[in-house]
Design a binder for these strands. Sequence first.
DNA 1: GTCGCTGCAAACGGTTTGCATGAGA
DNA 2: TCTCATGCAAACCGTTTGCAGCGAC
Lengths: 127, 127
Amino acid sequence: MERSTRQRSAIRAVIEAATRPLTPQEVLDGARTEVAGMGIATVYRNLKLLVEEGSVQVVELPGDSPRYESKHLDHHHHFQCRQCDRVFDVHGCPGDLTRFAPTGFRVESHELTLYGQCADCAGAASG
Amino acid sequence: MERSTRQRSAIRAVIEAATRPLTPQEVLDGARTEVAGMGIATVYRNLKLLVEEGSVQVVELPGDSPRYESKHLDHHHHFQCRQCDRVFDVHGCPGDLTRFAPTGFRVESHELTLYGQCADCAGAASG
DNA sequence: GTCGCTGCAAACGGTTTGCATGAGA
DNA sequence: TCTCATGCAAACCGTTTGCAGCGAC
């Protein structure tokens, strides 16, 4: 049976409070403000658990390590800032992409990642 | 100055002959049929070099290690088979995606990955 | 008192690097 | 001959695992 620990609550809270997908390290940093001395292994173990139970989803990015965010019900994609590496949600989707696949291929899903500058970095650069 | 070695030629040949992006290990396996005993470090060093010189490009995939393919001039995307994990080129692109980004964000490029079953695996499953 | 959870440290696996040797030019 | 390139093995780094002690229930 699953227990409620200070560590697990802190991890859950950090992810729920976030406005963008976080790396395990970012989750640890956030959770440590509540539970000092928490170990990174605890973060990984709990992330895995939360993903399995369905309250958290993994955001996999091309060539970068995964981020974690609260489960959204809507289909969405992500934007990664080339400058600060942070990832943000992007709502909207180009729609049906099956027409791009070669003949005989069965398309089941897709991932779209936009790259560029986030508002913070674009503002800092031009301001 | 850059030298022409048997290893480098073999690696180049394997990538040029491939019809899809290859993993470093696949490149090694292919190159070893020509130069037995080649080491994986040599593959990594040469891939890096070929990417820098522009004749090979990296294909980064969400949650998977990079693949390598000959440089194509056309903008294209990729399809990864959920069953055999191989990656294939997909020609075509949904077009302008800047409209999906939040206000203040600057979109410079994008990556699109389709997932499903390749023709081989779909055929084997239904046949 | 159980037994799941945690922190620590070691293990892992793909990638990179240091070093002595080998081989293009 | 002069170096760049190679093979080997060790180092790296993010992630996972083994284990003994802790703490939720």
